[in-house]
Simulated scan of single mutants.
Amino acid sequence: MRVKICGITCVEDALLAVDAGADALGLVFYPSSPRNVSLDQAAEIARAVSPFVVLTGLFVDAHPQQLEQVLEQVPLNLLQFHGDETAPYCRQFRRPYIKALRMKPELDPVEAMAAYPDARGILLDAYRKGVPGGTGDTFDWQRVPQNSGRPIILAGGLNPDNVAQAILSAGPDAVDVSGGVEAAPGKKDARKVRAFIRAARSAAATQNLHKEFEQ
């Protein structure tokens, strides 16, 4: 079970998340978000973290020139697209990427995933009209496709209290959290970060035991 802590805004929180066992950190490059980071902030965080942590940049329908500017100054390992980006748009930057899909009631996730055949993973997030993410809302985890053959990252309203249930219900390959481990928007809570990662790993271990027993 991989864990991504998103909405990192300072070196202190980045190091906290890595020390707690996070596999990936998310930096938000979306001016409307309270977790938006400047290029200077992002570059400072990138210099501070281990090269073995996946540094992810989150973008929402960004102009390609803006994104290229970020890539020139921040060594991102992975791009995360949270808007209405098409597959050709996503792949033009020649970096591994994941595509977020907001789980509208009428969305067929399998069909939507097929539109991004070269995405390294698909992130399924809650839907709220006019808000691209970070709502704190959950969605029906039973809607997560099983055995799709695609790595799935579960997001949307996760926190230390519900992440175990989410993993056992949805069976994702990874989980992504931001607001659920914060003391305030953009400021992580050390206790919540550690509790979230412990709960996620424990649930994944339980799930693996169940699978082995069934076999």
Rank of each mutant, 00 (worst) to 15 (best):
M103N: 08
Q92V: 06
P88V: 00
D40P: 00
A17W: 09
E182G: 04
V28E: 10
P88A: 09
F81M: 07
V144C: 00
R47S: 12
S32H: 15
P34R: 00
H210C: 10
D108M: 07
S202Q: 15
A205H: 06
D161G: 09
L76Q: 02
I45Y: 14
C10W: 13
P151W: 07
K192P: 05
H63A: 15
Y127H: 11
F59T: 07
V37P: 09
L58Q: 02
G179F: 08
V37S: 14
P172Q: 04
G121A: 15
M113N: 03
R201A: 10
F139E: 08
K129G: 11
A204M: 06
A155D: 02
A166T: 06
G121S: 10
E72H: 14
A119C: 01
L78R: 11
A184D: 10
R91Y: 12
E68D: 14
L15A: 04
M1E: 04
E85H: 00
N159M: 00
E12K: 14
S33H: 02
A62D: 12
D118L: 11
L209M: 14
N77H: 15
Q73Y: 13
A24I: 03
D84L: 11
R201K: 14
T9E: 12
D140C: 04
L27I: 09
A190K: 10
G21C: 03
W141Q: 01
V53A: 06
Y97I: 01
R35G: 02
N159F: 03
Y116A: 09
E214I: 13
V54D: 14
K192C: 04
S38A: 11
S33Q: 02
Q69V: 14
V53P: 05
R102D: 03
G157A: 07
K129Q: 14
A199L: 05
G57Q: 04
V11D: 05
G136W: 08
T56M: 08
N147M: 12
